[in-house]
């Protein structure tokens, strides 16, 4: 393996003499030197680095990768996508009128001038009313009787002037 012969031109000296007389006359000795004992200490330093590298936390490796140009664009797009999706979902959740209404009691809804609830549909107001009533009833009655009260409530509402579609959706 190590004794591979160069079948093309094994004699570098002859080749150089042929190519350039000037260069072949120059001193080929190595002009570079190293700090004292450098090569005695290098294997230990390398070994220490190898061990440190083996123990590198996964998070460090992840950050090393995402800052590499070839991965950075991909990670940036993914990051922006995650942020956008989470913003869209959080907005949907927070701005839904029913959510805002959940903080208002049904007594308030019934007693307040309808003008203040212009932004909400009839369906949203009724959904809030029903859910709050259910919550109140749950606090007062045993859970086994929950269905009876709910049915009663729907029956009561059906006697009022609400559209059948709204009642169906309840």
């Amino acid at each position: 393996m190590n004794s591979k012969k160069d079948k093309y031109d094994p004699d570098t000296k002859a080749e150089l003499e042929r190519l350039s007389g000037k260069l072949s006359e120059l001193n080929k000795s190595n002009p570079f030197s190293t700090p004292k004992d450098y090569f005695d200490e290098l294997p230990q330093k390398i070994k220490a680095n190898c061990i440190a590298n083996d123990r590198k936390p996964l998070l460090n490796i992840f950050f090393e990768y995402i800052f590499q140009p070839k991965y950075a664009i991909g990670f940036s797009i993914l990051f922006i996508a995650i942020i956008s999706v989470s913003i869209i979902f959080s907005n949907q959740k927070d701005n839904s009128p029913t959510n805002e209404l959940s903080e208002v009691s049904w007594e308030d809804i019934l007693n307040t001038d309808p003008f203040f609830f212009d932004d909400y549909s009839e369906f949203e107001l009724i959904t809030t009313l029903v859910s709050q009533t259910n919550e109140n009833l749950n606090l007062l009655t045993p859970s086994s009787e929950e269905n009876i009260y709910e049915e009663d409530l729907i029956e009561y509402l059906s006697n009022e002037d609400y559209e059948i579609e709204i009642l169906y959706n309840l």
Binding site: L26, N27, S29, P31, F32, S33, T34, P35
Partner: peptide, 9 residues
Amino acid sequence: FFDGDEIQM
């Protein structure tokens, strides 16, 4: 750590 002479430089 360069120990070469002028020609080597």
